[in-house]
């Protein structure tokens, strides 16, 4: 565990807590893409199946369980408890255009052609693009609440910090995984436009509004 990895995980944890608190406190999931949240639940489910096959550390196990519970908790709040507040008119990104290519890519490019490995690879590919329905929703409405912006910033920062973790591990441990690294770069690049708006607008106290 290095500092980049730890900060990355904390940023990830912060993101999911911000999202849950936002929905819970405002009793509303307005502005949040249910489609992105479905994709994240699929990502955690496919990746953390190894919870039952291999033990790594208490930290690892606890974090995996937290991400799974938070993810399904978010789906529960969005699609059941606060269903009436879900803005489905603006959440129209076709997720099959993301899921199918990720399935095909996972079957073609993986470290080992076994069920768990392919599911892990699928989750890595899917995670890299899972935020697109949410970013599409923000671009469609032309704005995002500050709290939604903080969520997106924390979520984007997490994989960016993982990139530094992978650079560190490459030099310190002679350890790297090209599948995770390339997907992580794609994932971080997708947030760049948002990062720019966040830093130039939200941090200066303004609402995130896209230029007309």
């Amino acid at each position: 565990m290095n500092i980049f990895r730890l900060l990355g995980d904390l940023s990830h944890l912060l993101a999911v807590i911000i999202l849950l608190l936002k929905i819970w406190k405002t009793r509303s999931c307005a502005g949040i893409s249910g489609r992105s949240q479905i994709l994240f639940a699929a990502v955690y489910t496919a990746r953390y199946l190894d919870l039952v096959t291999s033990y790594i550390s208490a930290y690892n196990t606890v974090m995996k369980i937290v991400f799974l519970v938070a993810s399904y908790g978010t789906l529960y709040l969005m699609f059941l408890k606060f269903k009436a507040t879900y803005d489905h008119n603006h959440d129209t990104f076709r997720i099959e255009f993301l899921v199918l290519p990720c399935v095909i890519l996972a079957l073609l490019i993986n470290h080992d052609f076994s069920a768990l490995e392919i599911l892990w690879t699928f989750s890595i590919y899917l995670e890299s693009v899972a935020i697109l329905p949410q970013l599409f929703m923000v671009s469609k409405t032309g704005e995002a609440e500050s709290i939604t912006s903080h969520y997106l910033f924390a979520l984007g920062t997490y994989r960016g910090l993982y990139l530094f973790n992978w650079i560190y591990r490459y030099y310190a441990e002679d350890h790297y995984d090209l599948i995770a690294i390339i997907a992580g770069i794609v994932q971080t690049v997708l947030y760049c436009d948002f990062f720019y708006l966040y830093i130039t607008k939200v941090l200066k106290g303004k609402k995130l509004q896209l230029p007309a």
Partner: peptide, 10 residues
């Protein structure tokens, strides 16, 4: 370098 899967990560 190795190209091992980083399964200790989240």
């Amino acid at each position: 370098g190795t190209n091992k899967t980083l399964k200790d990560e989240l």
